[in-house]
Design a binder for these strands. Structure first.
Lengths: 237, 237
DNA sequence: AATAAACGGAATTACTTTCTCCACTTACTT
DNA sequence: AAGTAAGTGGAGAAAGTAATTCCGTTTATT
């Protein structure tokens, strides 16, 4: 009998398996909060292991990202299909937008993957490419039924989701439902006819929203004390 | 007679004045395209002078930014005031949104300044703080007249502008008017009652939009060739 | 107890961005 | 026309930040 042709893939050691799980769990958390920009160092810290361990298990970030978000993207595709089951086509569309956005707004990593083109290729043939057609059917049906305005096209939807989730990810921490207001408004603008506007979700405290936006501002880097000191010597005018 | 108490501020040399103008012009262009993240080196290059020259004239970026955008912010405030002159309160609001956004979408720097909190303080007491009250009046009037839904608040507007301009700045180059579609949709969602939807602006070529989004993606940094090469050696699963 | 696998995390590499410095050039004196 | 102070360019110092490797130590497995 010939010896195993499979190149003797030794199973991982028990502790290595445990660590691999810890890393995946940590990556899920960290990517959800910080987005795909997160460092592998951050993930290692969160997982309670050294960076080396992360790199031994996942040769680079992209592999890790792909491993993690396959299922997230897949879920979005499933949502679109389920929405088509709904008997009322408008309700189905609304439901899809709400569900899809609630996932993208609470998971910055997911949002990044959906938008990004770098990771796109790796996931393209799996789930990501299933969302399009499903969404297309959903839209067409809602238009045929006279609910959805006929001058919107399929591509408008990812764009609107992108706009709304750009806010959602930012206010996620302090005002987690803020984005729903703007989805409601957009949907009220997308329906062909309605009498009264759909009531909006409660606007959270103004201060809270301001704080949320401030917190996410990228321009809060170096200490301002020094800057302010230099303020006046400007130059001739 | 006492000698001049003014500490003998020598006028700039002629070439220095010329360069100062060149720098301001270049900064306007570069900030508009790249946003406030632009390097002073980029500005120097665009101006055709050395970085040293830029730093001699403007001790740091913030001073330059403040010098440049004072008027931009001021213009937005003026727009809000003019909009209030309009006899129809809804039309005034629509007009303001369109005008304000068309400026913020073609000028990423302006958008950044409006959103940012770092630069906010420097401009706060000048123009930026005048926008709020003017907008408030505009909104209140449109609500009183029964046009604008009464469950939106003043703070919703900057947020909606932020969402829309986030798209606008990105597609600015290849699909400069794309944002107008979403403004139209939002406005159709903001009005209390309407029969038919307001017709949308033409959707540009799908490829074009995809290209525009791709071009702006931050994840297109290092050469992918190398990455792809490593793709398969992944690890045990 | 032997040993191969796995570990941690400091150190290296490879940027990117801000800002300084100084040898050289140029505009304004007189 | 010569002197000189003002101005210039742009290399490079300084200060990050992020990705990835390396190796002395620890640990699971036999």
């Amino acid at each position: 009998m010939p010896t195993e042709t499979v190149p003797t893939v030794r199973p991982l050691r028990a502790d290595a398996v445990r660590n691999r799980e810890k890393i995946l769990a940590a990556a899920a958390t960290v990517f959800a909060n910080r987005g795909l920009d997160a460092t592998l160092d951050e993930i290692a810290l969160e997982a309670g292991v050294g960076v080396g361990t992360v790199y031994r298990r996942f040769p680079d970030k992209e592999v890790l990202v792909a491993a993690l978000f396959e299922s997230g993207i897949d879920e979005l595709a499933t949502l679109a299909l389920s929405a088509y089951e709904s008997e009322n086509s408008w309700d189905g569309l609304v439901w899809f937008m709400q569900e899809a956005l609630s996932r993208q707004c609470t998971n910055k990593g997911l949002r990044d993957v959906v938008i990004s083109t770098t990771y796109a290729d790796q996931l393209k043939d799996s789930a990501k490419s299933r969302i399009g057609p499903a969404l297309h059917k959903l839209i067409e049906r809602a238009q045929r039924d006279g609910y959805l305005r006929t001058d919107v096209v399929e591509s408008d939807f990812p764009i609107m989701e992108m706009m709304i989730s750009s806010l959602g990810c930012v206010t996620n921490q302090l005002a987690p439902d803020l984005w729903r207001r703007y989805l409601t408004i957009m949907l009220d603008g997308l329906i062909v006819s309605r009498d009264a506007p759909t009531p909006l979700e409660q606007f959270p405290n103004d201060e809270l929203v301001a704080a949320a936006l401030r917190a996410s501002s990228r321009h809060v880097k170096r200490s301002d004390a020094l800057r302010t000191a230099l303020q006046d010597d400007c130059m001739s005018d």
